[in-house]
Design a protein around this nucleic acid. Structure first.
Lengths: 158, 158
DNA sequence: GTAATCCTTGACGCCGACGTCAAGGAAAGC
DNA sequence: GCTTTCCTTGACGTCGGCGTCAAGGATTAC
């Protein structure tokens, strides 16, 4: 099997497979014409990498699984090193999820506080003798130096 | 206030502040010597950006907050555009957290399955007439072509 | 005065996992 | 034989948010 077929069967691209090879994850035999030659076991390697990538594993983290398979084990996670990666990833996931939930709570708190503040301002505006109700955009336009910035200069690009 | 002082007071670096300016987030007046000149209101802008960055907001997502402050509003989230960003971020966070929890469940399942498989193999090895207990590493070393790859070729680096 | 520190702009580096383009050889269909 | 498709290597581009270095001018401390 050549690189194009392996890529198609694995649902990826030749470029990706060459990249894996460059990282030492997917060594390839060569035919007499210089073309890379793969077999079914290579398909398993690529599939293993794909599954882990979908889990959010970095390429380096897939290495123990790939080497486990290449060593002849039935599954990529038949080796202790792979299990260690699983456990480390679970810890990372727990930490990350915890942080994200903390952030979500804070953002939600900010949103609620800001909405309440706006509601208060709106209520005051309704009251007789309240402040002039200024349009959001109009307010911005009132101060001259706060006009739309036309200077947007991107780095290294003009 | 010059850029170094503002950076220090905001807990960031001059490079970062120049970067914000290049993105149109933090316009700076200039002194007669060409130095950037900032005041307390600029410190508020930078602090607003920092808070949102800590929440995981991208720089572009902080723009409505910064423009809101620059328009003279009391808070960066006093404007509807900022609230919209809050809501969008909450949705993104919910989606992301959900995905991560799904991945965590899958990884945990994989870990448990793999641990169970190893336990079964260990138990079989204990039984009389069971298979030869092969060392994890020894097994890998047995197949010659699966030896440690010494070819690790990094892209564009040798 | 002079050395140390601050400021300026410009430009390249970094990380990760590839995408994309280029120049050229091999293979496959007709 | 000819065209199209596939393969090869090499090298630059992408995205975000800066870090870091370079060359040179301004300010400040002593």
């Amino acid at each position: 099997m050549r690189i194009g077929e392996l890529a198609e069967r694995a649902g990826t691209t030749p470029r990706t497979l060459r990249y894996y090879e460059s990282r030492g994850l997917l060594p390839a035999r060569r035919g007499s014409n210089g073309y890379r030659a793969y077999d079914e076991s290579d398909l398993r390697l690529v599939e293993q990498i794909k599954v882990l990538q979908d889990f959010g594993f970095g390429l380096e983290e897939t290495r123990p699984f790939v080497e486990c398979l290449r060593a002849g084990h039935p599954e990529g996670d038949s080796c202790p090193a792979s299990l260690a990666v699983y456990r480390r990833k679970l810890d990372e996931l727990d930490a990350l999820i915890g942080e994200l939930e903390s952030v979500r709570a804070k953002v939600r708190g900010q949103l609620e506080r800001a909405e309440e503040a706006r509601a208060r301002l709106a209520a005051e505006a309704e009251l007789p003798g309240g402040p002039e109700p200024l349009c959001e955009l109009a307010e911005a336009a009132l101060s001259a130096d706060a006009a739309v910035p036309a200077h947007v200069t991107y780095e290294n690009k003009g």
